[in-house]
Amino acid sequence: MSESSRWTMPDMAGILSNKIPQDELKPGDHIYSWRNAYLYAHHGIYIGDGMVIHFTRAAGQEIGTGTVLDRFIFSSSPSHPSGSPCPRCGDQSRTEGVISSCLECFLCGGELYLFKYGVSPGVFIAKTRGGTCTIAPSDPPEHVLHRAKFLLQNGFGVYNIFKNNCEDFAIYCKTGLLVFTNVSVGRSGQATSFLAATTAIVSSPLRFLTTGVSGLAAVGFGVYCVSRYVSDIGVRRDVMKIPVERLILCPGPLESEATTITDTSKEKGL
């Protein structure tokens, strides 16, 4: 086994769990906490002094579809474990958009996890649950904090579970990367994993090569892994690094610029 392909102990530990003690957090860390029996995770950027900047919907509107489905997933809006308003944050249960909360309210009684950046393809695929890591490298902490604090004052657009959610917000703060595509999926690993899982068997012509349950499972898992990998922000090509000031002040020209770059890449066969 070559040196570059050998997995280290931190790699192995990271596959098992991304849990991190609160006293090991550093400003600029991308953190998350599982909600609703591990159905989904809420993400944010730790800025120090026990505070987190994150993107959320108001209570009862987590999915952001405007339909009855919104009632079946608990809100990611922060709440104090005691049930009473937090003495530091106040009552944020009806607050939406980019907000700042204390770590205790952000966790909402859940455990703390660290989102990993710059992982190897092997580790990424081994982490079968999306929304926990990416192949893309992180920018320096000062850049991450600048984006998060700027968006706290200016917003991050309209929340959408597939195109623009809390994980999308945190990944943008960490990388400055935006996805420009007609496909209705943003940067979120949770969203891409969900779509990969639901289409793994149905969309694969390989399903006709086997009829056994184990064979179908193997084919489905393979398609799922490939779909997750090619959709990762660190692999896909329909991304651009956008300064946060331009993201807020000049959204129109960015779309045109992204289209031009994409068309040019296609002409060159990239």
Rank of each mutant, 00 (worst) to 15 (best):
L112V: 06
M51A: 08
S77R: 07
D91G: 08
R88N: 04
G44P: 05
A59R: 13
C102I: 01
L112T: 06
T128F: 12
G48L: 10
P78K: 05
P85V: 10
A58K: 10
C108D: 15
K116S: 15
F74W: 04
F55D: 13
S75M: 00
S93Y: 10
D139E: 12
S75K: 00
Q92M: 14
E142H: 13
V123L: 15
E62N: 13
Q92S: 02
H80P: 05
E142L: 04
Q61M: 06
Y113E: 11
P137I: 05
F55P: 13
G110W: 04
D70H: 00
I135L: 15
L69C: 05
I53H: 04
T67M: 08
Q92H: 01
S120Q: 11
S76G: 15
L112C: 07
V68M: 11
L103M: 07
L112R: 03
P81V: 02
S76F: 00
H42R: 06
Y113M: 07
A136S: 14
C102S: 01
C108M: 15
S100W: 02
Y113F: 15
S82G: 06
S76C: 09
C102Q: 04
G131F: 06
V123Q: 15
I73N: 03
R94H: 13
G48D: 10
G44C: 08
G50D: 14
H43R: 10
F115M: 00
V68L: 12
T132K: 11
L112Y: 03
T134M: 13
Y113W: 13
E111M: 09
G48F: 11
S101K: 00
G118I: 01
P81E: 04
F74D: 13
G130A: 10
E104C: 02
A41I: 03
G97K: 06
I99S: 02
I47V: 14
G66I: 10
G66E: 08
H54E: 11
S77D: 03
P137V: 08
T56N: 07
C89M: 06
G122S: 13
T128S: 14
C86M: 09
G90C: 02
E96R: 13
L114R: 15
I63F: 11
S77H: 05
F115K: 06
P141F: 08
H54W: 07
G109K: 10
L107C: 03
G109A: 08
G109L: 10
Q92F: 00
C133R: 06
G60P: 01
E96I: 01
S75V: 03
T56A: 09
Y46E: 04
T132R: 15
T95L: 05
Q61H: 13
V123P: 10
I53P: 05
I47N: 03
V68G: 05
G97F: 01
L69Q: 08
Y40A: 02
G44K: 03
S138M: 00
G110A: 07
K116W: 07
G122V: 12
H43S: 14
S76W: 00
F106V: 03
S100A: 14
T134D: 09
I63H: 00
T95W: 01
D91S: 07
I63L: 15
H80T: 01
R94C: 05
K116G: 06
G50M: 11
E111S: 14
G122F: 14
L103P: 04
